[in-house]
């Protein structure tokens, strides 16, 4: 069943269109940077962007930082929100369940497919970022790079930490996926499920900027999204990263249980 869901996901033109669109923004940013040579000053704009002109090897991280606030969550919410509700809207859900496919099995397969989409998307963004970064900017493969703290990092350290960052971003997106998947079991409208998940993220980002909301700030799902920057401090600042992982873990766990409880007891009338 998992293989079937993966086949459905990656044989769908929309999946690849989404990934293409997602990559166009970092590429556009890179082209503009090269043409104008105007990098944002350190501490301004998306993280890492100020450093890429001198070290293109950092561009995968800049690319992730560019798509992380909006593009990536939208893409994940669209795909995860579509997972169950899309089948319901198309009417194929009733045929799958009557085939029969166990409801828990279907939900797990959908989850794995969404997870695969998240991983592929994040890796593709990073890979395209790497290609763009090393071809358009000066790469410093020998000298290594500079950490956010100002000390220098070896190329091995940079690539290792980049992999960690990719993993961290993927986990953050898993939280988005869990929201969208849960909403997807509530409604027969994929758009509704996607919008529900995005509404949660917009609300979370908004509350994060509000001082009055500071008591609940540590529990907001978007609170630790940008903590992957801390992986490039020297030494690595683990505090926010572990908190972020734990927070996403709790969200994912609770939402998946809720999605399972709802989906397995639901009347399928679509």
């Amino acid at each position: 069943m998992i293989l079937v869901e993966l086949r459905k996901m990656f044989r769908r033109p929309r999946t690849w269109a989404t990934i293409t669109v997602l990559n166009s923004l970092p590429v556009l940013v890179a082209v503009l940077l090269v043409l104008t040579d105007l990098a944002p000053r350190p501490g301004e704009g998306p993280p890492f962007l100020s450093a890429v002109l001198s070290n293109g090897a950092l561009y995968p991280l800049a690319a992730l930082a560019i798509v992380l606030p909006l593009f990536l969550p939208i893409a994940v919410a669209v795909v995860a929100g579509d997972s169950v509700a899309g089948e319901a809207q198309a009417g194929t859900l009733r045929y799958l369940l009557a085939r029969p496919v166990g409801r828990t099995r279907l939900l797990v397969a959908k989850l794995v497919a969404v997870l695969a989409f998240v991983l592929v998307t994040v890796v593709v963004v990073a890979a395209v970022g790497y290609v763009v970064g090393t071809t358009m900017f000066d790469a410093q493969p020998v000298a290594g790079g500079t950490s956010v703290s100002g000390t220098s990092l070896t190329p091995d350290e940079i690539s290792g930490r980049t992999l960690l960052a990719i993993g961290y971003v993927a986990v953050s997106m898993l939280g988005v996926a869990a929201f969208a998947l849960f909403f997807s079991t509530l409604t027969d409208s994929p758009l509704g499920a996607t919008m529900g998940a995005l509404a949660v993220l917009v609300a979370s980002s908004l509350l994060f900027t509000l001082d009055a909301a500071s008591p609940i700030a540590p529990y907001l799902p978007t609170r630790y999204w940008l903590a992957f920057v801390d992986l490039f401090r020297d030494p690595i600042l683990w505090r926010d990263i572990t908190r972020g992982l734990a927070l996403q873990g709790v969200y994912v766990g609770v939402l998946l249980v809720a999605a399972w409880a709802n989906f397995t007891t639901k009347d399928v009338t679509s």
Binding site: P13, A90, G91, R94, Y95
Partner: peptide, 11 residues
């Protein structure tokens, strides 16, 4: 089973 009309993946 054929339930309330057919449904397929259009693409």
């Amino acid at each position: 089973a054929l339930i309330e009309g057919p449904a397929h993946y259009g693409h």
